[in-house]
Amino acid sequence: MKAFHWILLYCTAPLLSDVQATYHLMAGDPELMAAQSYAQTRNNGRPLLRTLNPAKTDSQCRSRSLDLVFIIDSSRSVRRGEFEKVKIFLANMVDTLEVGSDTTRVAVVNYASTVKTEFLLKDYFSKLDLKKAISRIEPLATGTMTGLAIKTAVNEAFTEQSGARPRSRNISKVAIIVTDGRPQDQVEEVSASARGKGIEIYAVGVDRADMRSLQLMASTPLEDHVFYVETYGVIEKLTSKFRETLCGVDPCSMGHDCKHICVNSNASYYCKCRKGYILNADKKTCSLKQVKVEVVEDPCKCEARLAFQKQTQAAIQQLTAKHIQIERLENTVGRA
């Protein structure tokens, strides 16, 4: 019996250690406690449910700055555990981006029968603050007013008052819609209006999502903007796909043929020259700027000179004629 007690203590020690560590972690951060609430539950012997960890970080991309708005479905068909997976997906997406006031800004619009803007583009500029805000989002339940959610995102989240950068900044505006159902309102017209305002729309369908509705919402080409996963359990796999799509690669860092300066233009680049040089016709090489000297002649100079000469010659001729007359007169008088 004594040996059995030792074996029991030996087997349960790691479990007790994990429980103690989890208690201390959550006790230090009440917001994290809420986000980790599902981590201690087991369902019919299944593994522990993955939950949002705001302190976790991942690699980031640096090639694109975005005004990014997530539009997430939290209707009745989305179970509580599934909604937690959506929040993990959002947090993982935040990890892949370079977040900041001058780089990528993030907002979340939550919807069911009603729509709630959880936070705006101007609210959080750090990954940790963003993920804590995501961990506090609660599902709204009931219906699926996707069209209303898109309209709200356009009118509230993508405005300059809410933190969106002006068009003159050329910051990409991106909306990612996550839904598992069929919209109960019209999405075609409102989505077309959003795209017309320069918003690029990605539509992510889960399980029972209506593919036709996803296609009506998304930007073109559809094969790059419509995604489907069978369950919320695998939605995190889309993170790497979006990382490739939204981050891309800085073309200047991958090598270029610019003689002087390479300028990143999102998916492409263009060449510039240093001061004192001009870009050649090949748009790659530079030549020293030639200083063009223009000689401007006074159009009146020649005419004025000729006029003066004519006037002088006429005066001389008149004086000469008078002088000849005087000499003749003097000769006549002398003879008399």
Rank of each mutant, 00 (worst) to 15 (best):
M1A: 13
H5A: 13
W6F: 11
Y10P: 00
Y10L: 14
L15V: 00
L15W: 09
T22G: 15
P30S: 15
E31C: 01
A34F: 02
R42F: 11
R50C: 03
A55V: 00
K56P: 01
L66K: 03
L68W: 10
F70S: 13
I71S: 05
I71V: 13
S75K: 03
R79W: 07
R80Q: 04
E84M: 12
V86C: 12
M93A: 06
D95Y: 04
T96Q: 14
E98G: 14
S101R: 09
A107W: 03
V109H: 08
A112N: 05
S113T: 08
S113Y: 07
T114W: 04
V115G: 14
K116V: 05
K122L: 09
L128N: 03
L130K: 09
A133N: 09
R136Q: 14
R136P: 01
P139D: 15
P139K: 10
L140N: 06
L140E: 10
G143A: 09
T144S: 10
T144F: 10
T146H: 14
L148E: 12
L148T: 04
A149H: 06
A153R: 02
N155K: 10
A164L: 07
A164C: 12
R165K: 10
R167Q: 09
S168G: 03
I171P: 06
I176G: 06
V178C: 05
R182T: 03
P183W: 08
E189D: 08
K197R: 12
K197L: 14
G198F: 05
E200A: 07
A203Q: 09
M211C: 02
R212D: 15
Q215G: 05
L216G: 04
T220W: 11
L222G: 02
E223D: 12
D224V: 00
V226K: 13
V229K: 14
G233T: 07
G233Q: 15
E236G: 14
T239Q: 11
S240H: 05
T245R: 14
L246D: 11
L246G: 11
P251S: 09
S253F: 04
H256R: 01
C258L: 05
V263F: 03
V263T: 10
N264P: 05
C271L: 05
K275N: 13
N280Q: 12
A281W: 01
D282V: 00
K284G: 05
L288A: 09
V296K: 12
K301G: 04
E303M: 10
R305W: 02
A307R: 06
K310S: 12
K310R: 13
Q313W: 00
Q318P: 02
L319E: 13
T320D: 15
T320S: 14
K322I: 07
I326S: 02
E327L: 08
N331D: 08
N331Y: 02
T332E: 15
R335H: 07
